[in-house]
Computed example of a mutant assay.
Amino acid sequence: MTAQASSPSTEFASIEWRGRTVRVEHQWIAPERRDAPLLVFLHEGLGSVAMWKDFPERLCAAAGVRGLVFSRPAYGRSTPRAADETWDVDFMHRQAHEVLPAFFEALGIAEAPWLLGHSDGGSIALLYAARFPDAVRGLVLMAPHIFVEDVTIANIEIARDAYRSTDLPAKLGRYHDDADSAFWGWNRIWLHPPFRQWNIEAEIAAIRAPVLAIQGVGDEYGTLEQIRGIARRVPGTALLELPACGHSPHRDRPDAVIAAATDFITAQRA
């Protein structure tokens, strides 16, 4: 009989952020691969540990790496937003410059990991790599944002209406202890008028790590100018534009994403 790997167990780390102690839900994948690179997964604007499902385990197995999956504060089983907490235009910068370093320190991570980010998580990965260029081994990005587009705002407005009028809160409640915390933190800042000027194109030029940027041709939350703009700013960026794919390549085209990410990570290890 072949032994089957056990599912990752959920743990919590505590960090100090925004004047209070915040616990961060996380899971380790294949920690026994001590000599393998570490790949950290950064979820989308409504994501969490649970919402990744089995994608992180599949990718880590294919690439032969260790994995770390976590829910940002306000998401999943991490500490929800405080009742009076609102996010400003710099909310992704604060995640990249404050939360992620504090989280790594709490876990005793001293090595330079790979970062895999989806949507807002991809933008946070870019901002972290730009601020700490020597602390990142490489980036795999899926549908990241580097500026705000009309199509993004239009579909976030649709999501707001759906949250108010459908069973979307109950659906998100499967993945978050406090669905309102997750949804309104994300939705309100993206629809905040000053956020239309958010743009990180100039900042990402400081990135020195290798980058693979993936986007669906049918992405409903952004055009292909998002990843093409990264390629113009970060020399050597590899692009993968996937047909028959929307905003979530790891759900719409998981096999293609796993193959491309595995090849990219393996090539950098050679």
Rank of each mutant, 00 (worst) to 15 (best):
T266P: 13
L116E: 10
I258V: 09
G216T: 15
I200V: 14
N199D: 12
I200C: 06
T237V: 09
H145G: 11
T86A: 12
H118T: 04
R188A: 10
G122W: 02
S248R: 05
R33P: 04
E16Y: 05
A83F: 06
G222K: 07
T79K: 07
L239Q: 08
L115F: 13
A213N: 02
E105Y: 10
W190V: 06
E11R: 09
L212H: 07
M51C: 03
D54T: 15
A179K: 03
P243K: 07
E220F: 06
H97D: 11
V136M: 09
E201D: 05
I265S: 15
G121M: 00
L38I: 12
Q226V: 13
Y128V: 15
E85Y: 12
I15E: 14
A206P: 04
M142W: 02
P194A: 09
P80L: 05
R81E: 01
V49G: 03
W28Q: 11
D252Y: 04
W52H: 00
S6L: 11
T166W: 11
R188M: 09
P235L: 14
D150M: 12
R72M: 00
P31F: 05
T10C: 12
R66Q: 12
A13H: 09
D88S: 11
H93G: 10
A125K: 00
A159L: 08
I258W: 05
A267I: 14
S181V: 01
R77D: 06
R208W: 03
H118C: 02
G246L: 06
T266L: 15
L224E: 01
F183P: 02
E149F: 06
D54P: 15
F183C: 02
P37N: 15
S181K: 00
F103Y: 06
T2Y: 13
F55H: 10
R164Y: 02
R253D: 05
E44A: 11
V40P: 01
T79G: 11
G67F: 13
I258L: 08
W52E: 00
D120Q: 02
P194M: 10
R232Y: 12
P80W: 03
P101W: 02
M1S: 10
E11G: 05
Y163S: 07
Q27R: 10
N155H: 06
R33N: 04
I29C: 07
G229F: 06
I124R: 06
Q95V: 08
P254S: 09
L116V: 08
V65Q: 03
L107P: 10
A179H: 04
A162M: 14
V89L: 08
I124G: 03
T86P: 04
D219W: 01
L59Y: 14
A231Q: 01
I230P: 01
A162C: 14
P193T: 04
E203G: 09
F147E: 03
Q215I: 12
A112R: 03
G138Q: 01
F104K: 14
